[in-house]
Design a binder for these strands. Structure first.
Length: 307
DNA sequence: GGCCAGGCTATGG
DNA sequence: CCATAGCATGGC
């Protein structure tokens, strides 16, 4: 699946490239890296010079799409890339996922619009905190809030020489020690008390995010909904993007619009009807289907790639 | 300046 | 149960 590129090559070392830098090729097909990293699942990735840079956990990484797969470079020790395969979900066979979608015109159109779009597997706390900050915000604004949070309260991570500084997402314990005013200073607005409450619930152990994935979906959802400022949409984002529940189906303004326009002829079904439809129509890969609908609608409306 | 953004809570029918 | 104002903030 994977082979080392450079890293131990004497030529690279002799060329003065950082001895600490490491690279690999993740051989994967059907993977649209740009669409995936810019699809509103994650908010901190930056495109420049034909590559994407970001932080996964406590590791800086640069990714480049090539015909053979995804070329990755990071800083720091270790030939282990399982953390990146986990984040990118490169072992997932997209073919099987797409085959599980309902075979109807809207889904065919959505897949045709962006085959290769993938679901990532995020760290739960970062995902929860990010989506608490997302309500009634555009993606560009969400980025701004999170960048401030990370620059102020995240720990610096090791980057290769010449790269700009990068920060890990702040730990829950760090944010839990702040005040609401600190978070408002990061432009979190009315989301500040919600973010603080979530940080304290996680830091205190009252909410064990790592254990959610082992619970039945309804129970995991209830535990998230118990947090102030976390409703069905944010809960489902965490369940789908971080906890590994493939049927979680976040309905935001875009997906709600998609369902009404594509499946209800622009009518306004009762919320319960819409929710029932979302739960039953899309099958065992409903969450993936949702992501394709989201991307399809945004692209159709001419949304700017950056948000 | 009005409108809207990967929503949620509180309040009123 | 359903509908709607209000909430901070910023870009168009």
């Amino acid at each position: 699946m994977r082979r080392a590129v450079g890293g131990s090559s004497p030529h690279r070392v002799a060329a003065g490239i950082a001895e600490a830098s490491r690279a690999t090729l993740l051989a994967v097909r059907d993977y649209d890296l740009a669409a995936t990293l810019d699809s509103g699942q994650v908010f901190r990735w930056q495109a420049a010079g034909g590559r994407w840079t970001g932080v996964v956990g406590r590791r800086w990484v640069a990714l480049r799409q090539t015909p053979e797969g995804i070329l990755a470079e990071t800083a720091g020790p270790g030939p282990d890339w399982s953390w990146l395969e986990e984040f990118l979900q490169t072992r997932v066979e997209l073919e099987a996922v797409l085959a599980a979608f309902p075979d109807d015109p809207p889904m065919r159109a959505a897949v045709a619009a962006c085959r290769g779009l993938r679901l990532l597997r995020q760290e739960p706390w970062e995902c929860l905190a990010s989506f608490i900050c997302s309500s009634t915000k555009r993606i560009t604004h969400i980025r701004q809030i999170l960048e401030r949070l990370c620059a102020r309260y995240g720990e610096p991570v090791r980057v290769p020489p010449g790269e700009t500084a990068a920060f890990a997402f702040p730990r829950a314990t760090r944010l839990a020690a702040l005040t609401e005013a600190d978070l408002r200073a990061c432009k979190a607005g009315f989301r500040a008390p919600f973010l603080l409450a979530a940080a304290r619930a996680v830091a205190s152990g009252e909410l064990d995010l790592g254990a959610l994935g082992q619970r039945p979906l309804p129970e995991a959802r209830q535990r998230l909904l118990a947090l102030p400022g976390v409703g069905p949409k944010i809960a489902d984002c965490v369940l789908l993007f971080a906890c590994g529940f493939p049927t979680a189906f976040p309905v935001d303004v875009w997906v709600g619009r998609a369902l009404r326009e594509l499946y209800f002829q622009h009518r306004q079904p009762q919320p319960a009807v819409l929710a029932r439809f979302a739960e039953t129509h899309f099958g065992p890969q409903a969450g993936y289907a949702q992501q394709y609908l989201f991307h399809y609608m945004r692209a159709r409306r001419g949304a700017a790639p950056e948000g």
